[in-house]
């Protein structure tokens, strides 16, 4: 039903993408690069890529999954790039941690915040799964489509990822989440 938007002009489609998915996609980008500046730049690259590849979108697929896939691939390209390895963009990540005092953390839902920090410190291949599943509320099928990995590999990674979190957190915190 949503794919009706694809009959509009490219500019209108981009407006729609920004309005409907921009915020969530930018947040996912942030979980990969952990820098607001870099998130802004990658979001621009994502939009350009969407604009250029609109003709390739297959109308019977999910627009949402297609958009996330493009954004995720942009992030992975960036993380693999020598630019990322050469220049550090971690000032803002540091400032987040510095800005949040112990008191603030205590006021926030502490347990969940600890889990989030642990998830974001996992290697990308586990982190991205938990972000899509528990933050973006993707189904296993949607995660599998967005990351282009088969469901059995996905389940194995979820299991291994949970084990790694367990080691970090010292308990099975994620078991209570669906």
């Amino acid at each position: 039903m949503e794919n009706v938007i694809l009959t509009k002009s490219k500019d209108e489609i981009i407006d729609y993408v920004i309005d409907q998915y921009g915020e969530q996609i930018k947040r996912v980008i942030f979980t990969y690069v952990k820098s607001y500046t870099q998130t802004d730049d990658l979001f621009q690259e994502f939009l350009i890529n969407v604009y250029q590849r609109l003709e390739q979108f297959e109308a019977n697929s999910s627009l949402k999954t297609w958009l996330y896939r493009i954004a995720i691939n942009k992030c992975k390209d960036y993380l693999r790039s020598p630019i990322h390895r050469l220049f550090k963009y971690n000032e803002e990540v540091k400032s987040i941690h510095v800005a949040k005092s112990a008191e603030q953390l205590a006021m926030e839902n502490e347990q969940e915040m600890i889990i989030v920090e642990a998830i974001l410190s996992l290697p990308t291949k586990y982190r991205e799964i938990f972000v899509l599943r528990f933050y973006q509320s993707f189904s296993v099928r949607q995660v599998s489509d967005a990351l282009r990995i088969n469901e059995s590999t996905l389940k194995t990674r979820i299991m291994r990822g949970k084990k790694k979190l367990q080691q970090k957190l010292g308990g099975e915190y994620l078991e209570q989440y669906e």
Partner: peptide, 30 residues
């Protein structure tokens, strides 16, 4: 579920409660 909502909220708090998408994103693109 409530537990999932709490985790979702924690992600949002961690990344920042203010909207990441601004008019500047749209302007910059166009």
């Amino acid at each position: 579920s409530n537990t999932n909502k709490n985790l979702n909220k924690a992600f949002n708090d961690y990344i920042g409660s203010a909207s990441l998408v601004t008019n500047e994103d749209r302007k910059r693109f166009f």
